[in-house]
Amino acid sequence: MKIAIIDESPARASIIEEGLAGLDQPDIHILTRRNGLLAQLEVIGPDIVLMDLGNPSRDVLEEYFAVSRALARPIAMFVDESDDEAITASIDAGVSAYVVDGLSKKRIKPLLDLAVKRFNAFARLESDLKEAKGKLAEREAIDRAKRILMDSKKLTEPEAYGELRRKAMSSNKRVAEIADAVVTAYEMMGD
């Protein structure tokens, strides 16, 4: 079974590829560049095309599938309406799957399930990373705010943190938000 993965993020593409490697004799092709996309697909002649929902070339690809005579068998996202549950899961995960007509459902289902799992895993990875970055930025803001309070109000570090925390609790906000406000105010007031 020939599988084409179209993804402008090589990292995600390889995570998906790795996930599909467990299938029986997968023949996986990864396409990460927009240029010459259709020509490459024509050469590969895939049975299944996986593409993330955020790819701006989706309309181009759908048009190609709709009118092209180049592929031996027509390919569509919705071969069978009874696939609806699988399609819902894939849309939720952020992946669209185009399948050639005639490919049996028994063969599509496990592949789609794996792809969905991998997409979800990648999304989690990304959000973890984003969260970690956010946390790092928050910690920096808190450190700066503490320094500002220590300098201007002659407080010790624990006292400065205590001030931030007290204000946060009384105004029903997070410490990081108060710290942000302190830093912003400080920047606006000048040195």
Partner: peptide, 16 residues
């Protein structure tokens, strides 16, 4: 916000 009509349509049809 999306970058293709196919995805705008899919999100509409699948309740996003």
């Amino acid at each position: 916000k999306d970058v293709s009509w196919a995805t705008v349509l899919d999100r509409l049809l699948y309740g996003h």
